[in-house]
Design a protein around this nucleic acid. Structure first.
Lengths: 207, 207
DNA sequence: GTTTAAGTTAAACGTTTGTTTAATTTTTGA
DNA sequence: TCAAAAATTAAACAAACGTTTAACTTAAAC
């Protein structure tokens, strides 16, 4: 995909929101056009088709996340500090891009459409590689245990964040989080703390 | 919903498979009818509508899971043994019902359709209540730590299992799991062990 | 200022969607 | 055995789908 102009990005943002809310099949080109204030023909004109528009969206978001990961990778921190930072990055990324994740995870699970997810999967792999590098650093330094399945740490973290967002209504009730602010506050504090605690316990067996 | 006859259950099984594969909006009543070998009018005749059919499916599966949980609850085991058994139950349930979970989680995240998820949410709440009871038992016995957010343990477990299934293709490549058998074997051993290890580390800080 | 390209539009295209109808067959109960 | 109920069918319904067309307007280039 070539570089996107402002109007294309605006359309992608609208599409992302609607896809996340109602799914790819549940969102019509007319929905997107109306919400974005454009003519329905513009989708085909700019992106070729509805499916190719989704591919453009995946590429657009994946590139942004890849850059965020790279900046973190070059920071000078201890292994545990770096893992904590990574957890915070995961949480903010899932929160910011939860619409896209919702779409992609759904489409990934049902690979019946032949969409190009490579950009997204590359980011996931970079995630895993980065955690592996950090943990091995900690193991070499003698602060981390060695009998841990490192590759399963990222999905442990991301999985929980996802469960929390997916079952938002239930947890909002359970923890008495009535407003958006209260919900986000819980994520930023309790949920983040729990994840960091879990990782630390798994890797060090001490708090 | 009244009791279901054999034909209704057959239709639900077909619908579950297709919904899980292609999503609710991605599956047409004609798809279901063809795959189930029935006339399209039978869906409306038996269930009222496509949406009500999904509600019947949710109720049908939720009741089965509820019963499984109840049998486990009454077994005489130590707190840690019970948690291990619960992890195994989660893993088998998600594996067996992954199509339904796929549908429900997607529809839960996008509450734009007014579906009745109560049966499903009740099971989730029972999950949490059960874990809370077990952990408190262990805390009273002095084997479990007390500074743990118990309610976040079930979504930690279920979230990971889900991530693993959703990103199946990536993990199959990463762990070199070419066949279905190899993939299932990895879940039954490595993944299960990792989850048990994580929970034990979080609650006891020793292995 | 004129020509070429890019952007934008309303309308129409053929399919497919979920649901309903009315006719017909099968099963049930007395 | 026969009438009532349940099950099943093909056909039709209006509505919505993604995409394309051809006419039109705006912007860019020389």
């Amino acid at each position: 995909m070539h570089t996107l102009n402002e109007k294309q990005i605006h359309i992608l943002h609208v599409a992302e929101k609607l896809f996340g809310e109602k799914g790819f099949d549940g969102t019509s080109v007319r929905n997107i056009a109306k919400e974005a204030g454009i003519n329905i023909a513009m989708v085909s004109y700019y992106f070729g088709s509805k499916e190719k528009m989704l591919e453009s969206l995946i590429l657009y978001r994946s590139n942004a996340t890849k850059m965020e990961l790279d900046t973190l990778a070059h920071q000078d921190l201890s292994p545990l500090e770096k893992l904590d930072k990574l957890v915070e990055l995961y949480i903010s990324r899932v929160h910011k891009n939860r619409c896209l994740y919702q779409i992609v995870h759904f489409e990934l699970a049902n690979n019946h459409r032949d969409l190009d997810f490579n950009a997204f999967i590359e980011v996931k792999k970079r995630n895993v590689a980065m955690v592996e590098q950090i943990v091995k650093q900690g193991q070499d330094a003698g602060v981390f245990r060695k009998d841990v399945n490192i590759a399963l740490i990222p999905p442990t973290v991301i999985g929980l964040i996802f469960q929390f967002h997916t079952n938002r209504e239930m947890y909002a009730e359970m923890f008495n989080l009535k407003s958006d602010a209260a919900f986000n506050h819980y994520i930023k504090n309790e949920l983040t703390a729990h994840i960091k605690q879990t990782i630390k316990a798994l890797l060090t067996h001490e708090v």
